[in-house]
Simulated assay, not measured.
Amino acid sequence: MKTAVFTGIRKITLEECKTPTAKGNKVLVKVNSCAICTWEQRVYTGVNKVEFPFIGGHEIAAEIVAMGDDVNRTEWAVGDKVVVGATLQCRNCYYCKTGNSQSCEHFDHSAHLEGLPYRGMGGLSEYLLVSPDCIFKYRNVDPNEACIIEPLSCVIHSVETANVQMGDFVLIIGCGIMGLLHTLLCQKKGATVIVSDVNEERLKLAKKLGASYIVNPMKNNIEEEVKKITGGIKAQVIFDTTPIPIVIQDTFKCVSNVGKIVLYSSIHPAEPVLFDPNWVHGKSIQILGTANSNDRDFMRAAQMVSEGVINLRPFVSEVYPAEKIQDAFESAAKADKFRVVVNF
């Protein structure tokens, strides 16, 4: 089978390796599409440190092609279209056993998955051997869209962490794919969505996707705009989907009393951010973190996409064949697109 392997910074090649065999309680899936996440972009550019050689890819749409003897035939069949996710949780620690596998104590991007020649998440391979615990059925959409179910599942977890309520004012900072997926979900939760970004084209798309208000902080003072829109109370929930440390300071200026700030993105560089603890205490502010997703998030994301509740088509920016994997990563690394998708 073909496998895309990181061999160094800005070096990725397509290698031939042995196709795994399905046995026991494992299924073999053929990967149709794998989207290039920001995490893999950072591996490619050297920001995220891994030990080479490394196999990336975790936004995966696939099809079951073989099943081990112990796989439940009532639930699974050859030909099922599935998304692959939640492969890195140990499913044994305290957090996994209490329904919080997204925060697994042993979560490891560099685990060595069975059937792969090197460490890594493995989605940039023609075939992948997985447990039925880690696959979720989808239907009615193209694999190039279905592979984006994984980031949608992470955003579902984020929105539920914030417990967005009908009638809330929600400020979403950043109009990348994650900010726009937050926009879609919060709008469907009955919130009034305000989106902030410096990219005018992306602001227009946010408006088209359901944002009630858009703000360009390079042209307007974001604090004053949020106060004006909300009648002075500011936003009950703020999602920061950008990696920029200084942007966190803007969230402090725009959050309401008893409001919530969700730090959705990882921060690069990871610099300390100063805040007044008496303000957090006195105004009952909640500062929350969220990362990854769990089985429940994946199931609901797959269902929403399959039934057309969420349309992921606008986020497929480019599609490359696996044979042009280096070109795909060079394009994705420009960071001017939503998702670049690789087809096997």
Rank of each mutant, 00 (worst) to 15 (best):
G176R: 01
L205K: 13
I229Y: 08
I229K: 09
G231F: 03
L205G: 03
K189D: 05
E225I: 04
K228T: 09
L203T: 03
H182P: 08
D197L: 06
I233R: 15
G232Q: 03
E223L: 00
G167K: 10
P217Q: 01
A206F: 07
K208M: 10
S196F: 00
P143A: 05
D240R: 12
P151S: 09
K204F: 02
E224L: 09
I214S: 04
S212V: 00
K204Q: 12
E224A: 11
E200V: 06
A211K: 07
E160K: 13
V170W: 14
T183Q: 11
L181T: 05
V237F: 11
Q236I: 08
M178E: 15
T192M: 10
K228S: 12
N220M: 12
N140S: 15
E160L: 08
K219I: 02
E225C: 04
E224C: 00
C147K: 12
E200W: 01
I229E: 06
L171C: 07
D197Y: 02
S196E: 00
A191Y: 08
S212L: 10
I229P: 00
V198S: 05
E223C: 10
E201M: 13
K188R: 15
V237K: 06
S153V: 02
S153Q: 10
H182E: 14
T183H: 11
V198F: 03
S153N: 04
E224W: 10
I172H: 06
V164N: 05
K227V: 01
G174C: 08
Q187G: 01
L184C: 15
G167A: 08
C175W: 08
I177T: 15
E201N: 14
E145S: 11
G210D: 05
I173P: 02
N220L: 10
A211L: 05
F169T: 09
P151C: 07
S212K: 14
